[in-house]
Every structure is written in C-alpha cells, then in structure tokens.
Design a binder for these strands. Structure first.
Lengths: 299, 299
DNA sequence: GCAAATACGTTAGGAAAACTCACCAATGCA
DNA sequence: TGCATTGGTGAGTTTTCCTAACGTATTTGC
C-alpha cells in the first residue's frame, strides 16, 4: 500500500467481482481463471486489512466495506475508461493531415498512395500539397514532410527518413544527350543548367562534391518549383539538378538520364511533427515511409 | 487495453511522473529506478497509441493528451486513496468490542489480557462481559466468544477455537473430598450436584458419556451463572459440572479436584463475527485465542 | 570551451507477480 | 443421492517488472 493506494490490478479484479457479485463472472469478464480473481481479491483484502466479501451459500456477498469500495472503485475506473476512450477516439476521428512539397507529392507519394492506404488503413491520411513555403506549425497540419538539414527546432519531433542525394539529370531527348551520357564534365558545363530559384545553391553543392569550383558553372533557366524544373528536364530543355528520390522512377524507366550519379547533401527528408500533437500514427507513418524510401533508393 | 482500461500500474507511474513533470522524481516517489518508470510510461503510450510526454531539454514535458490524462488519473487515484484511507481509518479508530461470558472473562481471559495487549497492540480490545444471554448481533459488538454447537448461523463468520470439555469438579475442602477423590461414581451420586440453571443438561451429557443414565443423577443447587457455580464449588458446597477451560488453572493449583477427568461435548468455544463487519482483526484475534487455548488445554 | 553533473532511454538478466491447472469443500438442484 | 456449480488453495509455469549498467543529450561550473 505505497502512498495509500491499494494494489491496482487486485482492485480491478475486485471491481468486476463486486459489480457482478461473482468471482467466476469476474474471471470470465477478465479472461482469467476464477482462481486468479480469488487470489487478487484475497491480496486486496490483506492489503486493506478487512474482508470485502463473505461467503453466501455457494456464492459470495459484499460486506459493508466491500460495498463502499465497489462504489468508489467503480467511479474511479469509469473515469479512467472515459478519458482513455476520449483520447483514443479523438485520435481516431481526426484525419492525419500531411503537408508535403508538391513535387514530392506528385513524383513519389501519389504512386505509393494506394499501398499506404492499404497498409495503414486507420491513418485516414489526408495529403496537403503546399504551394508556397512549408509551415510545419500551421494549424490543422498534423505532420509535414520536409527536406532540411539539422539542427531541427526543439518544439518538433523530427523523424529523419532519408538522406537527400542530388545529381544532374536530363532527357534522352535533349539535344546533347549522346555527348552528355559519357558523363564528361566539360560537356555538362556547356549546357543550360536548370535549377529552382528557391535553391540556387544546389548546383554549387554538387559541384563542390565533384571537386569543381562553383564559378565554373553557369546557371541557366530557373523555375519557381521543383515540379516544373523536373518537367522541363523531362521535356529535354537542359540538365537539371534534382533529388534522386524524385527522379528515381524516371531514371529507371529511361525517361531521364543521370550518368554522373548522385551525391549526398547535408539535408534529410524528414517527417516533422509538432511535439504537442504527437501520437503513434506519426511514428507508424514515419516507419512506413522510411522502409518505402529505402526501397526507392535501392532500386 | 481490456475493457477500455489502460495498464493500471503503468498509469500509476504516469500519474506520478505527470504530477512531478519528472521521470526521475516519480521513480523516487515510487521507490523504483527511473528506468522502470520510463518503461511503464512507454507501455502506457503504446497502449493508448499516443505520446503523453515529449522531451524538453534534459527533462520531459506533457503533451496535450498527457495533460488530460494527468488530470483524470489524478482524480481517479485520489478517489481511490480517499476511500481506502477511510476504510482502514474507520477500522483503526473503532475499538474491537469483544463480548464474552462473565465466567470465561474472569477465569480465563483476564489472566491473559496483558499478554494479548502486548502481542496484538493495534487491536484496541474492549471486553464486554454480558450479564444475560449473549447476543452476537448486538449493535456495537464486534465479535462474541460463545460456547455453542454447530450448525452456526449463515450471517456469522465463526472461528472455532476449542472443543468444550466438561467434567465434575469439587474443592478439597469439600466434606466428602477424600472419598470423591477415588473417582468412585457411587460416591458422586450421593453428592449435591451443583449446576447452572441455563444448562441443566450438562450433568446428563456427562453422565451419558460415562455410560450412566441421566435419571441416576440428582441435581442439587442451581446457579444462574457459571461464575457463581464455580465459586460455590471452590467454596466446597458440592460437586459442580464445569468446562475444563474455566477450571484448568484451579485444578492445576489444587484449588479444585477433577478425578473423573473431562469429556468432550458437541459444543465448541468459538469466536462469532457478524459477516458484515468482518475484518482481519477478528481473524488475528481468533488465531491468538486458538494457540493460547491449546496451551491451556495442554497444561 | 571542456569536464562534470543531470535527466532520460535502452538493454539484458534475474526477481517478483500473476496466471493456470488441478484438486478439494460446500452448496443447491435434479 | 448423484451431479453441476461456486469458490478456495498448492504447485508449477509464464509473464511482468525491476534493477544495473551503459549510452545520449543537455545543462552547469570552472
């Protein structure tokens, strides 16, 4: 009886037995044998130092003390049951709103969406492709998929999913496709280097990883969104610098070529969840995404 | 989560941790290691499927769900603590009123009272020698010592303590003491057979056990209470029929003689407790009485 | 800045609790 | 009276829980 509380599992057994006025009945309700319930009640009686049941014929009857405890424990357990139901219900009802960059949504997520719905059906996933800047703290957003480098904000639970790999890609329909496919850097330098305006440094990062100086590169056409950049590359407008994840499918299918391969950046694709609405759906989604992403990378 | 209730021990750990906003603090309060609390909380989070704490610096912080559960579980546990305190306190405050025949009180109980007080100090025993008939259901009586034969009433918890043995006793100061001491039945038949009016059949029972017919006995003086009967015998007024328990000490000291020995009757000295106010004090008292009685009998 | 201290998570394994199975006694019903 | 039902109990096993030890992240002290 530490801190005035009786053994709680014993109390649960007692509550059921007291409500049903039957040891056997309580055993059935709790999916245990009657011996287990009998012992638990005895343990509780010993802890309190008073009898809760007395034998009555071949059944049992509550003593005065037993009746008081039945009422109190019934109330207490009802209170707990209610709040637990409320918490789990609130979670079940609320849709899981996942914000994510449009390009990732279109090129990676949507093809895998039906599989996700099948494998995590109770998620009630609702995708939100943000047009502008992603704001993981936006009201109504349960979680956000971001490409970003650590450190991460303290108020966010961040599940890192995959390192970002970037590299140049171009269409086989590109004018210089044949020359570029030799992976000759000098040929690349002569090309229009397509990029996103929001991430002009991408080419520079890649060049540094290749041992080139950033100045050797001449940026060409810029696009506001990665999505359009990739469309432009696929249309043969030039060489784009793109995350491996988003073009893996196109490269595999031969719609895009990536003879220089990809290099790892500081950034991580990660699932960001505000800590105050953390629940295990986010964790499960992160787990699913991680395994799915490693397959994408492996293929 | 059977029947909507979370694991209760995990909930207790959570409640402490939530109240103190500290895993380590809760561990200290519950006298366990922080690892144990950490695991319990994790188990609870898994059962509910949502995060209750999030990391905050080197400590922890409650999530929204955690705060709701803290409030509810705090209330529920307080309710339980209160009723348990009330039940155990009520028992502690109430004196244990033991009703008992006056003769037993005077001749057996009082000499052993200080030992009982020493060995069961928290009993707060209060003895009540009933003048008239014992009523084990009387208000304010916690338990009653009775000589009676089974069957016992269903609303009573009866702890059998000792079989009753009865036999004739007389004082060495009795006129015929020398002849009686030969244990010659014919000498006995000539004596005034002292008895209690409430139990006239006692001599008959004993006679039957000796192979005599009841008619052969001539009852002499009757007394209303066993106590006076024994005093009369001790004063040498004649031969009394008495329970062995009550005269054992006198026989041992030579103040009374019992050359025919004692025979067992149907009756049992037993502790009677109304089932509705059963608590473990009665059981402990019964246990003490039983061992004490067996010593009396053995001596 | 770097070492020490604090708080929490995690693992393996050993102690403690709970359960099951089996049997017994008591009761009530056919 | 036989038999089913209900509850108590001992022995053995499973499950749970705890501890001890180490690892990580953060804060504090110098």
């Amino acid at each position: 009886m530490q801190h005035g509380l009786p053994p709680l599992n014993a109390l649960r057994a007692f509550e059921a037995a007291a409500r049903l006025e039957s040891i056997t009945g309580a055993a059935a309700e709790l999916h245990v044998t009657h011996g287990a319930v009998s012992r638990q009640i005895k343990q509780l009686e010993d802890a309190l130092g008073l009898a809760l049941f007395s034998k009555d014929g071949r059944g049992v009857k509550l003593t005065n003390a037993g009746m008081r405890l039945r009422d109190a424990s019934g109330e207490a357990f009802t209170r707990l049951r209610d709040v637990c139901a409320e918490l789990t219900q609130a979670r079940r009802d609320a849709p899981f709103v996942l914000a994510c960059p449009g390009s990732l949504l279109a090129r990676w997520f949507i093809p895998r969406l039906d599989r996700l719905q099948r494998e995590l059906p109770d998620l009630h996933l609702q995708l939100s492709a943000s047009e502008g800047e992603l704001n993981p703290r936006r009201e109504g957003v349960t979680a956000t998929l971001c490409f970003a480098a650590p450190p991460w904000p303290a108020d966010m639970q961040v599940y890192p999913l995959h390192s970002e790999w970037i590299g140049p890609v171009f269409s086989p329909r590109c004018a210089q496709a044949a020359r570029l496919q030799t992976a000759d850097l000098s040929a690349l330098l002569a090309q229009p280097l397509l990029h996103t305006t929001s991430r002009r440094q991408a080419w520079g990062d890649w060049a540094a990883a290749q041992g080139l100086k950033a100045e050797q590169l001449q940026l060409g056409q810029g696009f506001e969104h990665l999505y359009y950049l990739l469309e432009a590359a696929a249309a043969g407008l030039g060489v784009a610098i793109a995350p491996q994840l988003l073009v893996a499918e196109d490269v595999r299918a031969g719609r895009l070529l990536a003879p220089w391969g990809f290099v790892q950046t500081q950034a991580q694709l990660a699932l960001w969840v505000p800590k105050s609405n953390a629940d295990n759906r986010a964790q499960r989604l992160a787990q699913w995404l991680k395994s799915e992403l490693s397959e994408t990378a492996a293929s």
